[in-house]
Design a protein around this nucleic acid. Structure first.
Lengths: 300, 300
DNA sequence: CTATCGCCATACGCTCACGAATGATCGATT
DNA sequence: AATCGATCATTCGTGAGCGTATGGCGATAG
């Protein structure tokens, strides 16, 4: 690309166009919401830069020279393109059609997102949603997803994160399991039970130990990254698991274990990238999720 | 015309284009011969003004967003138009084809311009010259002519005037007239003769009286604005006239009267408008006239 | 003929955008 | 591992370009 050819002040072109259209420097200044000396200066400088006299000054107002007349055509083309930029940007900024990618833990994706996002079907029929059930931390900056539901605050400062509430966790087990293995009365009792879950985080083991349940990796008879998988093993009667109340309370086969134990709350972080500020499509989904998640966290 | 739609900083569009083309802010800055902070600022401001995020910043360089991708097409169109402006201006600034209007007194237009302008026929075959023989002061600012040959310095400061020399004037009469009416020996003698000419200017009468020839309006038996007409009446033998030596000496029928009298010199002013500075066509004609007139004034 | 109005050019402070310098981060290379 | 090189963000001092105010000029109206 030849950058030299366009290395003049493009704003001066607009000043010239306004003057050609409006007839005088003063009128052009009014149209562009600036002042007459500015218009005059800009056109003079443009003439000098292009090496061509565009306007013949007279006290009665400027007249186009032959050169100005010739260039005016291209100037209009430039202005038209500028108008298109402005209009396309305006459309981009208000159009709620298109694609939004949402990533969340599979459990949330299965248990919560459907009902939370359903209202958008009516409000934005053109909206297309890609759900990325994942427990990995997707890189929002590289646009693998537009919105993420996380349980940790993201570190990158350029991401927009909102803490929309907390999920209350409880211990659950299948009725069939408890009938067979017995219902623990104290945290110490629970340490002898079988557990299923996601023991990868050292933090979780510490949390459990603080609750008085001294578990080790060996206590977990089934591990999976997938909360849905865990939940199914739980329902099948493999053992006890710490899971969000909002997702397990509705299950008839599950029962709370040690219901009076003060169990941890997991924060819910709604995360998106900078474009939230300008894409109404993403903002709409973001706002809906914030609302729905906050309500879900509050009601349970 | 909707000026609001184009009321963003057009230079910032160029910064965006350069970044999209070159891949990074730094590379764009190099291409546009500016600096990386400037590029970053300009794009940020453009994004804010358009209400759209154009680039996703990352430490490895920016990536086009969906909105940026969409707008890029119009941005290229704008840049292309800018290129055309630049190129058309360059062509205008070097093209010697086209029309030039020259105004001069009819006498000069008849007696001098043809031979002075002839060389241009070879040097600029595309050049078209309109000759406007006129003794009125044409308004160059309103483009009634591009170049004027005058004998007074124009008052308007926005005009470009060059004093290219002086025309030596002398008194002339037809041999036939002098044979019949006698050859005056002294200025005082001349006052009894018949005169032809352009007595409209009071200054001329004063000049003649200073030379010792006390004339009045009544001394002029034939008046005309047109020097050519005067010359023909002169040649026909109507009387004496004060005319440029350069035009009358070649005439075999004419003879100097009072050849030793110190007669006035008329300055030759070559006048043009501001576009001389940029139109090579006008400049070429102007330079040629300046050269030719100076030489004509010197040699005679 | 004078008054008024609108136009453009010029002069003069002042602000804002620019460039230089620095820091932080990441990938590539040694 | 460590250094290098390239990227972008931030800070800060300065100058270019802006707006205000003013003057001159010509056209128009009274």
């Amino acid at each position: 690309m030849n950058w030299d050819a366009i290395s003049f002040d493009w704003n001066q072109v607009r000043a010239f166009l306004a003057t050609a259209e409006e007839g005088t420097f003063s009128a052009a200044a009014r149209a562009l919401k600036t002042t007459q000396p500015t218009i005059g200066r800009q056109i003079s400088e443009l003439e000098e830069r292009l090496g061509v006299t565009l306007l013949e000054r007279s006290v009665r107002g400027p007249n186009l020279t032959e050169a100005g007349e010739t260039l005016l055509h291209h100037v209009r083309a430039m202005s038209d393109a500028a108008t298109l930029i402005s209009m396309a940007a305006a459309r981009q900024a208000t159009d709620v059609s298109g694609r939004v990618t949402i990533t969340a833990s599979d459990m949330l994706a299965v248990g919560l997102l459907p009902q939370l996002l359903l209202p958008l079907r009516g409000r934005a029929p053109g909206l297309r949603m890609d759900i990325l059930p994942s427990n990995d931390i997707k890189n929002l900056l590289q646009r693998e997803a537009d919105i993420a539901v996380r349980h940790v605050r993201p570190e990158q400062p350029e991401l927009i994160a909102r803490h929309v509430g907390d999920l209350q966790a409880h211990f659950y087990a299948a009725k069939s399991y408890l009938d067979q293995a017995g219902r623990p009365r104290t945290p110490r009792d629970a340490a002898d039970h079988a557990f299923v879950g996601i023991p990868t985080s050292e933090g979780l083991l510490n949390t459990l130990q603080n609750l008085g349940i001294p578990l080790t990796r060996e206590s977990f008879v089934v591990n999976s990254d997938s909360g849905v998988v865990i939940a199914e093993f739980l329902k099948a009667g493999f053992g006890i698991s710490l899971l969000p109340a909002a997702l397990c309370d509705p299950e008839p086969d599950l029962e709370r274990v040690l219901p009076d134990l003060p169990t941890p709350r997991f924060p819910i972080w709604l995360v998106t990238h900078r474009e939230l500020q300008t894409s109404p499509r993403i903002r709409m989904v973001f706002d809906q999720l914030a609302l729905g998640l906050a309500e879900a966290a509050r009601s349970l």
